[in-house]
Design a protein around this nucleic acid. Sequence first.
DNA 1: TTGCTAGGCGGAACAAGGTTCCGTATCGTC
DNA 2: GACGATACGGAACCTTGTTCCGCCTAGCAA
Lengths: 195, 195
Amino acid sequence: MTTDVPRRRADARRNEEALLDAAAAAFVAVGVEAPVRDIAVRAGVGVGTVYRHFPTRADLVVAVYRHQVEACVEAGPTCRAETASPYDALVRWIDGFVDFLVTKHGLAGALHGDGSRFEALHAYFLERLVPVCDELLSAAAAAGEVRDDLSGYELMRGVGGLCAGAEDDERYDARRLVAVLLAGLRAGSPGSPRR
Amino acid sequence: MTTDVPRRRADARRNEEALLDAAAAAFVAVGVEAPVRDIAVRAGVGVGTVYRHFPTRADLVVAVYRHQVEACVEAGPTCRAETASPYDALVRWIDGFVDFLVTKHGLAGALHGDGSRFEALHAYFLERLVPVCDELLSAAAAAGEVRDDLSGYELMRGVGGLCAGAEDDERYDARRLVAVLLAGLRAGSPGSPRR
DNA sequence: TTGCTAGGCGGAACAAGGTTCCGTATCGTC
DNA sequence: GACGATACGGAACCTTGTTCCGCCTAGCAA
């Protein structure tokens, strides 16, 4: 038995699981802004327990979305491999990212927002996703398919901004705006026709 | 004496003035998220007084920025008149709008955010600015200079999204992203070269 | 100048959200 | 079965927006 991680108590593991489930459910129902108390109640647990498992509200959010973020990370190389042009790969990847943002009620807003409240979440997203985006973006730039004066960070932040608060507003189609942005990306490339 | 507005008491007028000044100062110093209590203190006034003059925090924000918004409204026709192509007029107007958003600490975020907290502000912006944007946009679309499947509302919301939280982040240049978006707008127009 | 009163003022109090703390309960081992 | 480490619950605290109400005073009339 080389489990050098000091095995946690059964109830602790059980509660963490319950919390993740409850939080996921709450986020779907109410959005990422769901109050900690509500999540605790859903999980049949006290608030103190929430904070033992997740130092901060944002950490809980990160935990809930972590595997989805990882999926997004892995989608990068996949898009790259399965698509002929680097630009199309980028578009496809961004599309998946938008899916993620728009699907999750209020995620983009939370990510974007004032920044202070979801710092941990924001930091995690950046850390994982920006390199992927950078990769796709510079490949497309190298191929002369898009302008090269934009960083992956900027692009992601822009897309995030366009998606923030997009759910529950039928007058606004975030996906269409993102498409326009991506078109603009291409438009500015050295080789693209101007005027 | 045909002042049919029932003249308000001197102290009331004085306080409203003080509040507007204090709020403006607070917004510059701390951002639009400045707490009502702080603003009240700055103005040397009780919170109750704040709420008598401005039913809601957001109404205070609106009042502070009202004349700047109006300037933006008036800039619409001006840009239209002083610019040869409708597209350039649009670009120029949006540029002014971005100025406004980026200059004011956190305004874009407040406007954009979840929408619930700054409803009055949001509503006011929409009411005043969307028609102007619609005008410029449809003129450009009519001239075949930009795609015509986007509403002024969508464009403004998009621009707002791109600008949210742009101050205090030197890795992100909102203005550049907006430029990309506008380029994308043009790229998608019927007459524009594709491929 | 003095009095009166409607309109205005201050700030305590309430609601809602995140976070902390600590007495108590439980798990897992001896 | 006993005991110590671990985890739990939820009351309590902080911050923010908002409401409420008793007190005050500007402005008018006598």
